[in-house]
């Protein structure tokens, strides 16, 4: 049973790794680099926190 579990672990690892690589390729070819890297630190704070005590 443990040997079978070991082979199953390799199988799951390979399938999920391939899925992530496929998704990565799909996202990178669908969206522009500007959109993907458009996140900015502190967006929420700039709107909601005015720091008036």
């Amino acid at each position: 049973m443990w040997i079978a579990l070991s082979y199953a672990s390799w199988g799951i690892s390979i399938v999920l790794a391939l899925w992530m690589l496929y998704d990565w390729f799909k996202v990178d070819t669908t969206f522009s680099e500007e959109v993907l890297t458009s996140s900015r630190e502190g967006d929420l704070e700039a709107v909601s926190e005015k720091h008036r005590i």
């Binding site: 443990w2 040997i3 579990l5 070991s6 082979y7 672990s9 390799w10 799951i12 690892s13 999920l16 790794a17 899925w19 992530m20």
Partner: peptide, 20 residues
Amino acid sequence: GVEGLNHNAFIAATIVVLAW
């Protein structure tokens, strides 16, 4: 406690499944 059983498969599954 099985002779010949290696930990590498479980290490790979841990890291890859959690990364997923």
